[in-house]
Design a protein around this nucleic acid. Structure first.
Lengths: 105, 105
DNA sequence: CCATGTCGTTTACTTTACGTAAGTTAGTAT
DNA sequence: ATACTAACTTACGTAAAGTAAACGACATGG
């Protein structure tokens, strides 16, 4: 295993996107801000990993976490500008999937 | 962990792209057909995993493996039509990385 | 013939990531 | 007090990935 000959920014971007679930979480948040339990029920991710990923994406400046001290307290996750900028990536993955993945596995 | 409420094709596409290294392998092969050792030296992937991923991508119909019985034997990996169709996805990830990832980590 | 080298791949073993299930905390309702 | 929900967190087992060494096919050189 040697060092890269490719662009480190691209490598880092890929690293984020190729972490399991991050793409789906971003695509889900592109439909609008929402709470933990809503994301959790959108695809078969475990709560433990969703929690871990949201924290990671927050660190990467892609996701924003906001606490609304209502009653009951509401915690809402949304995309930052950096996260919203991933929309074209998600769109292209959707296009490719529609064109090249067979509907029935 | 529950079932998905999202498009299964998109979920499958995401699954492929969010497997570690697949995006980088595809982006490397977009620069042209090449052999194992060349891909291996493009980024810090281990030979064991590169071998595993190429087999996986071949199964998914994204990568094509061709053996040229020269001396020494040459094995060349290239993208299928399905693989080449990933170019816009890779391009958008590159754009996003250029715009949003800081050069020095 | 036997040692040496290369390429792609495989095996054995360790480390890290992920999945499952149960527990925690804070607030609300019954 | 008890029960319930949302959002985590902890503990633990399994699966995936990393490291290092070895393998088989072939070629070359002594």
């Amino acid at each position: 295993m040697e060092k890269s000959t490719i662009c480190p920014r691209f490598e880092k971007g890929m690293q984020i996107l190729s972490k399991r679930w991050t793409g789906l979480i971003v695509s889900q948040l592109l439909t609008g801000p929402q709470r933990f339990c809503n994301i959790e029920s959108s695809f078969p991710i475990s709560g433990r990993i969703l929690s871990e990923r949201l924290k990671y994406l927050e660190q990467e400046g892609i996701v924003k976490r906001e606490v609304y001290p209502e009653t009951p307290v509401r915690i809402e996750y949304s995309l930052t500008e950096k996260g919203i900028a991933l929309a074209p990536v998600i769109r292209e993955i959707q296009n490719w999937s529609t064109d090249w993945i067979e509907p029935a596995q």
